[in-house]
């Protein structure tokens, strides 16, 4: 009866290896002293140093962060509004259509989104003379349009879970709908809004396809820069850059998970105590 499920364990190991060996080898080789990517030349952190001295990379990173911050924030505002509308207004004319239109970009190939955004910007420039150049603004707008969907999906599912009665209770106690939104609805769904923002932020930060369609000369985001550099051959400083990204994302995900687990554990402990004391 004590027999280990060898098959399951080996499948698990294979799966993890498949995912993580490429990333691990990238991390290891980012500390490679040699200029040749595949030949180990001793431990060194010089690629990290050169990374921070490379103005091109620093500029691209700053641009990416700016776009991600702005587009995530605007996408969160729009997506939250759409999510609330979809969850709360159960029946209105064209609800199905609206809901379909909001979620369509989830399944739309990115190439299509990118090319249609590009065509839209070109036509718009023809008709109203704006945007005359493509760059920061157009990329941000394009990012908003597709990352907003993720926010609205997360917010909508949280809204459906949340008890409608607490909003009615607030209204019953004398609050107008906008006060109910401010005092009750938004605080209750705030974790979903925050995770929607994080999602939108990371999606924007690592997007290549849509960005490449909507950006203009001189506005190269970090993923685009990496992509163009890799086309000329993988250099060790790219390894270092990617490793930094993995570390930042890993720490962020771990932190978010830890915070959520801690809050949940505390809530369960409180609830247990309450029942022991007062049942």
């Amino acid at each position: 009866m004590n027999r280990r499920p060898i098959f399951l364990i080996s499948v698990l190991c294979f799966g993890f290896a498949f995912f993580y060996i490429p990333i691990l080898s990238m991390i290891v080789y980012s500390f490679n002293g040699s200029k040749l990517v595949t030949i180990w030349g001793g431990f060194s952190t010089k690629w990290y140093v050169s990374l921070f001295h490379n103005q091109q990379i620093v500029k691209a990173a700053v641009l990416s962060l700016k776009i991600a911050l702005l587009s995530a924030t605007l996408a969160t505002i729009l997506g939250t509004m759409a999510g609330i509308a979809l969850a709360r207004f159960r029946v209105f004319r064209g609800r199905m259509l609206f809901s379909g239109l909001v979620t369509a970009p989830l399944v739309m190939p990115e190439v299509i989104t990118g090319i249609s955004s590009l065509i839209f910007f070109i036509l718009l420039a023809d008709w109203v003379g704006w945007p005359s150049v493509r760059g920061f603004t157009t990329v941000t707008l394009a990012h908003i349009t597709f990352s907003m969907v993720f926010v609205s999906t997360v917010v909508q599912s949280r809204m459906i879970e949340a008890d409608r009665a607490i909003e009615e209770a607030a209204m019953d106690l004398g609050s107008r709908p906008w006060e109910v939104m401010r005092d009750i609805t938004l605080p209750v769904i705030s974790p979903a809004i925050l995770s929607g923002w994080l999602l939108a932020f990371t999606i924007s930060l690592d997007d290549v396809v849509i960005t490449s369609f909507t950006t203009g000369p001189g506005n190269t985001t970090l993923p685009l820069l990496i992509w163009s550099k890799v086309k000329l051959g993988v250099t060790p400083d790219i390894n270092a850059l990617a490793t930094l990204t993995v570390v930042i994302v890993g720490v962020g995900v771990a932190l978010a998970g830890w915070l959520m687990n801690r809050a949940e554990a505390r809530r369960q402990k409180d609830a247990r105590l309450a029942y022991q004391n007062n049942a």
Binding site: A165, I166, E168, A169, D172, G174
Partner: peptide, 20 residues
């Protein structure tokens, strides 16, 4: 007359307390 202007208050079935 909207709910917030009525001299009426309600105790909801599952109490609908504000969780936060």
């Amino acid at each position: 007359v909207p709910p917030w202007e009525r001299p009426v208050h309600m105790m909801f079935q599952n109490y609908a307390l504000f969780p936060h």
